[in-house]
């Protein structure tokens, strides 16, 4: 998958959890990613984060730490 598409998908997830009440929004993103993203996709996201994670929603960046 292109990084662009991955960023879009991850940010969409973050946008949802970003609107949810409570302080565990990044945890929500991380849990969602773990439940629904296949290891290859998670690996791609981690690589991308390692490379700076440009354009990623901060919640994704935060979630990335627990992946």
């Amino acid at each position: 998958m292109t990084d662009e598409k991955m960023v879009l998908m991850a940010n969409q997830i973050a946008s949802f959890f970003g609107t949810q009440p409570g302080g565990d929004q990044a945890a929500g993103v991380a849990a969602h990613l773990k439940d629904f993203w296949e290891p290859r996709m998670i690996a791609q996201l981690k690589d991308y984060l390692a490379g700076g994670g440009a354009n990623l929603n901060p919640l994704v960046v935060e979630a990335g730490e627990s992946l």
Binding site: M1, K5, E38, M41
Partner: peptide
């Protein structure tokens, strides 16, 4: 671990995996 969904399968196919 969860597997690939249809769009992910197609993406992974284009990526060669």
């Amino acid at each position: 671990e969860p597997g690939l969904r249809i769009p992910n399968m197609l993406d992974a196919a284009v990526d060669g995996t």
